[in-house]
Simulated assay, not measured.
Amino acid sequence: MGEGLIYTDVKPEKVVLVGVITSDQTEEMANEYLDELEFLAETSGAETLKKFTQRIDQPNSKTYVGSGKIEEIRLYCLQNQIDTVIFDDELSPTQIRNIERILNIKILDRSNLILDIFAKRARTADAKTQVELAQYQYLLPRLTRLWTHLDRTKGGIGMRGPGETQIETDRRIIQQKIATLKEKLEKIDRQKSVQRGNRGQLVRVALVGYTNVGKSTIMNMLSKSEVFAENKLFATLDTTVRKVVIDNLPFLLSDTVGFIRKLPHQLIESFKSTLDEVREADVLIHVLDISHPNFEDHYRVVNETIAEIDEHQTDKPTLVVFNKVDAYNPKPEDIGFHPDGKDFALDALKKSWMAKLGKQNCIFISAQEKINIEEFKSRIYEEVKEIFQVRYPYHNFLY
């Protein structure tokens, strides 16, 4: 949120996580969401000491959890010198004020944490501007009594109206910043639109998927380039585009930002220019981590987010790629698998219920271990070739 708002502690912050079990969210789901929240916290540089859950009809409108649970959290934080409490859902301004008053330490919610990670991961001016805009849009309705000066250079003579409080001044400063950032993004969007236009009419293929499923590893493998990849959430923020050639057939391959559950609406809005690569793609490669126990849910989240970008996206040719088969441990009920022999396992996977998830247009690979890569390339080739032939009907080097 600007240089003055970034935490620079060297030692990891000690945090606790808070989630709820409701009629809409089972205990299993709540625990999994908290595991993911812990991964987010770790990515942000924090150490999780404890997770709190409460079974409740719906989140408490005043303090998210009940009075007894919030007191339990307060005592634990006091006894263990906790720095931050992170809640798994987006908190309202009222909830933040009430919880801060009770706990008297820093409060974050999932959206705030994701925004913080994006701020740390942003490398280009484009990504930094998008993240900063999303942060200010998130912050605007949440200014609290604990807030201090946003920008000292803006204070002083001429900035404060008659009887204007500090929060009102801060709110006006944020609104000015939002307007400035939107203008900056519009200019960047125009530049990127020209860049996309200059790429000619090559077929465009976009890698999409949940965060940390291996998209950047696939990008590196196909394009023989070195896109940053690591086992952390949101390792890639800026869209990377590379020209790839498979059997003399050229196309453009883009690696997009990973999706996640409860992605802040502000981020989806501010990153729409980045996600234009998805909107303008001719073919989507939807990557799933088959070794993750909840890849079906990830598949749903990504499809819902893509539909939010543009409802027509779901009609595009899509190849579903089950990555990380080397790390997949079949359940006992998944008959047809054999502990030895990757080829046999691949045959079993092709006949499994998972193959139906991508409406039969799917493939099973390991980008890291180079398993089934030739067939993967062949499938991409066929998808691109079909579009290429329509676009260039008189180009005969393919035949």
Rank of each mutant, 00 (worst) to 15 (best):
G4W: 00
G4Y: 02
Y7M: 05
Y7F: 10
D9Q: 10
K11Y: 11
K11C: 02
V15P: 08
V18P: 04
T22G: 03
E27K: 09
E27V: 05
N31G: 12
E32N: 12
D35Q: 11
E38R: 13
A46F: 12
A46Q: 08
T48S: 15
L49S: 08
F52K: 02
T53E: 10
T53V: 15
R55Q: 12
V65P: 01
G68N: 13
G68V: 09
E71L: 05
R74A: 12
Y76A: 07
N80Y: 03
N80M: 09
Q81G: 03
I82S: 03
T84N: 07
F87Y: 13
D89M: 04
D89Q: 13
L91M: 07
L91G: 04
P93H: 05
T94C: 01
R101Q: 13
R101T: 12
I107M: 01
L108N: 06
L115G: 04
A122E: 00
L133K: 04
Y136T: 11
L139T: 15
L140Q: 09
R142V: 11
L143S: 02
L143H: 02
W147C: 10
L150V: 09
R152T: 10
R152I: 12
T153D: 09
K154R: 12
E164C: 10
T165H: 09
T165L: 04
Q166V: 12
E168Y: 06
R171G: 11
K177I: 08
A179C: 05
L181Y: 01
E186Y: 02
R199M: 08
G200N: 05
L202G: 04
L207C: 05
G209Q: 02
G209W: 09
S216F: 05
T217P: 09
I218M: 13
M219H: 06
M219Y: 05
S223K: 04
V227H: 01
E230L: 05
F234T: 00
L237C: 04
T240D: 00
V241I: 14
D247Y: 07
D247W: 00
F251E: 02
L252A: 08
T256M: 08
F259W: 11
F259H: 04
H265A: 14
E269K: 14
F271N: 01
E280N: 14
S291T: 01
F295G: 07
D297T: 14
R300S: 06
V302M: 01
A307F: 08
E311H: 14
K316W: 01
P317L: 03
N323W: 14
A327C: 14
P330A: 13
I335E: 15
G336R: 06
G336I: 12
G341V: 10
G341H: 07
D343N: 15
F344G: 10
F344W: 13
L346I: 15
L346C: 13
K350Y: 15
W353P: 12
G358E: 03
Q360D: 14
I365V: 15
I373T: 12
K377H: 07
S378V: 00
R379S: 01
I380P: 09
Y381N: 05
E382K: 14
K385W: 06
K385G: 00
K385I: 03
Y392H: 09
H395C: 09
H395T: 12
H395Q: 14
F397C: 01
Y399Q: 13
